[in-house]
């Protein structure tokens, strides 16, 4: 999965997206905050949702406890 590398750590783009979810946000808001292309944010957030790192409610993504734990883990 592209959001988590082979070493079990978040990829750089996933880290940026998760960091942008300090407060719940739409993909458009995450794209604006991270300066990543919107298509990439949509795909990345979807993959992170499948991995349980974020959750989607009514078009707004929020990080999960698992996502926050991975984000705060030492690199």
């Amino acid at each position: 999965m592209a959001c988590v590398g082979s070493n079990g750590e978040l990829t750089e783009s996933a880290r940026r997206m998760l960091a942008a979810l300090e407060n719940p946000a739409t993909p458009e808001q995450v794209a604006a905050h991270t300066e990543l292309p919107l298509f990439r944010v949509r795909g990345g957030l979807r993959e992170m949702a499948e991995a349980g790192l974020v959750e989607l409610n009514a078009g707004v993504y929020a990080s999960t406890q698992q996502g926050r734990a991975l984000l705060s883990a030492k690199r």
């Binding site: 999965m1 592209a2 919107l38 298509f39 990439r40 949509r42 795909g43 990345g44 993959e47």
Partner: peptide, 13 residues
Amino acid sequence: THGKIRLDDYHGG
């Protein structure tokens, strides 16, 4: 090469 992508991820552009 940038992960899984759906065509509709590009919606709006």
